[in-house]
């Protein structure tokens, strides 16, 4: 059972606060969905959690250990994996080499192919030549090959066909059911709320909603209002 608790987190970009006093928690078996309009601070928040950007204040605890001052590599050791937006495959490496680069052992590579059998016939193809859907599967599989406890996924569905997005969403749900803690940043709110447990809505870097996904799923007007603010 793993748990990440984030308290009063602040992340700046170019000395400007983009994420402010954010507190959230995520635990094994749960998908926490981060929603918000463009520029709300979702990606910056994930980058602060994984260490891509140093945090300006607050605390990040994984299973009781503070990690906010650690480098990204050390946070991986603490059990965090971050699937960045933009399908960051190693383009000059084959599918199999991408998986091996992230895997702790050969059995982890095998598990990755079991999770995404679509990748098996493409194992010797350069990752840069894979389709968008295959690349997204590869970066998720590569992150999982390191046996993380907490998986952060940023904009998984961007630029992908709806059938692929549904396939990926189902897989993410399956992973959470197997015990992984997932933080999912997603533009397609309806799809994310359908698989998520807990939802957070960010507006201008602050959390303006923290509650069950089901509540927002059944109240699209409320979600719209949360995105745009009470004045709209």
């Amino acid at each position: 059972m793993s748990r990440m608790v984030v308290s009063e987190l602040r992340v700046d970009r170019v000395h400007l606060p983009v994420v402010r006093e954010v507190s959230l928690s995520v635990e094994s078996g749960q998908i926490s969905v981060l929603l918000g309009a463009n520029g709300a601070g979702k990606t910056t928040l994930l980058e602060g959690l994984s260490g891509v950007i140093p945090v300006a204040g607050g605390k990040i605890e994984v299973d009781g250990h503070e990690i906010q001052r650690q480098r990204p590599g050390a946070r991986v050791g603490a059990g965090l994996a971050h699937v960045e937006q933009g399908r960051t495959v190693f383009r000059q490496l084959t599918t199999n080499e991408n998986l091996r680069a992230g895997a702790a052992s050969a059995s982890d590579v095998k598990k990755a192919y079991e999770l995404f059998p679509e990748l098996l016939p493409r194992r010797d193809v350069l990752a840069g030549l894979l389709s968008g859907g295959e690349q997204q599967m590869l970066v998720i599989a590569r992150a999982l090959a390191g046996r993380p406890k907490i998986l952060l996924i940023d904009e998984m569905s961007a630029g992908l066909a709806p059938t692929i997005v549904r396939r990926l969403m189902t897989t993410v749900r399956k992973l959470a059911d197997q015990g992984l803690a997932v933080v999912l940043v997603e533009q397609f709110a309806v799809l994310a709320l359908a698989v998520g447990n807990r939802a957070y809505v960010l507006r201008r870097g602050k959390i303006v909603y923290d509650g069950a996904c089901a509540e927002l799923r059944d109240a699209p007007d409320k979600l719209h209002q949360l995105y745009l603010g009470s004045g709209s």
Partner: peptide, 15 residues
Amino acid sequence: RALSERPMAAELIGV
């Protein structure tokens, strides 16, 4: 080779 292409992505998988 992974590091040469994407240093941050490599660090994020534990390289």
